[in-house]
């Protein structure tokens, strides 16, 4: 026992190194994409507050741009107002209003922390469980998709960005409705990769890609981006399509979190049907 202690003491530098590295890797492993400890990340009260304070200053640098974006969006929303339409008859029809309830609810939020320089990027926003935000809600900007909420505290939530090598989102080509899956390969903050589109589909550069609405997270027809380039890998029957994101991830300041009020119901039904067939 004593010689063991002496041995450890003699090589304490090496053993301490091993110990600390294993602690690090335990932290990394326990803090992966799906289960991230909420005490020590940017959604915690302390770091969230510090980042918000800095963001308050930083915001001034992009005020002009943000103002323009908000004004554009205001104009768009005004166009959608009921007064802007010529009502041809008295019948009102809302697609998802079967039970007189809203299906999607938008919560505006401010982006307080956002990275684009890693392979796994996250976004912190200043709305948390107080505003009813929960994991698996979609985050969009006025230009298009941004990410998915994965962790919530009372006042903040973190979302996994589309710029994360593990994200996969169901998207479709707007003009013909063909559905593929959108991923990010980590090389450019402006480009995503749309795959699983068969080669018999006619596509062209500049076609618009939107969300498919198949997942319970994103509503249908949220803007993703435009086709920049595409090719067929040798020996494959599917296109590899490069999509230029409509969202400028390096300049995010405002976002909306989308609550899907029917998400739970749809998920439960789907899980039940799967369980029944097994």
């Amino acid at each position: 026992m004593r010689s063991l202690l002496r041995f450890i003491f003699r090589y304490h530098f090496f053993f301490l190194f091993l110990l600390l590295e294993s602690v690090c890797f335990m932290l990394i492993a326990g803090n992966n994409f799906f289960q991230r400890a909420s005490i020590v990340n940017t959604s915690s009260a302390f770091t969230g507050t510090v980042l918000t304070a800095f963001n308050n200053v930083e915001e001034y640098f992009s005020l002009r741009r943000t103002n323009r974006l908000l004004a554009e969006e205001n104009a768009l929303l005004r166009n959608h107002q009921i007064e802007s339409y010529l009502l041809s008859d008295t019948m009102k029809y809302l697609k998802y209003d079967e039970l007189h309830m809203v299906r999607y609810e938008y919560v505006p939020a401010k982006v307080v922390n956002n990275t684009v320089n890693r392979q796994k990027n996250y976004i912190t926003i200043n709305r948390g469980s107080k505003y009813g935000i929960a994991p698996d809600m979609a985050v969009i900007s006025s230009n298009g998709i941004v990410g998915i909420v994965i962790d919530v505290t009372e006042n903040f939530s973190t979302a996994i960005s589309i710029l994360h090598i593990d994200t996969k989102i169901s998207a479709k080509i707007r003009k013909n409705g063909y559905i593929g899956s959108l991923t990010w390969d980590g090389t450019s903050k402006n480009m995503g990769l749309l795959s699983d589109i068969s080669t018999y589909v006619t596509i062209s550069k500049g076609d618009t890609v939107v969300t498919s609405g198949f997942s319970t997270v994103f509503p249908e027809n949220i803007m993703v981006g435009q086709i920049e380039d595409f090719y067929i890998p040798e020996g494959e029957n599917f296109f590899k399509i490069k999509v230029r994101f409509s969202t400028d991830f390096s300049n995010l300041s405002f976002a909306y979190v989308i609550k899907n009020h029917l998400q739970k119901e749809q998920k439960e039904l789907e899980e039940r049907s799967v369980a029944k067939n097994e």
Partner: peptide, 17 residues
């Protein structure tokens, strides 16, 4: 650094090495 950038453990591991 990790706590501020949501990369728990990664910078710690690199710095210790």
């Amino acid at each position: 650094i990790d706590i501020f950038s949501d990369t728990l453990g990664m910078h710690a591991a690199a710095s210790v090495l």
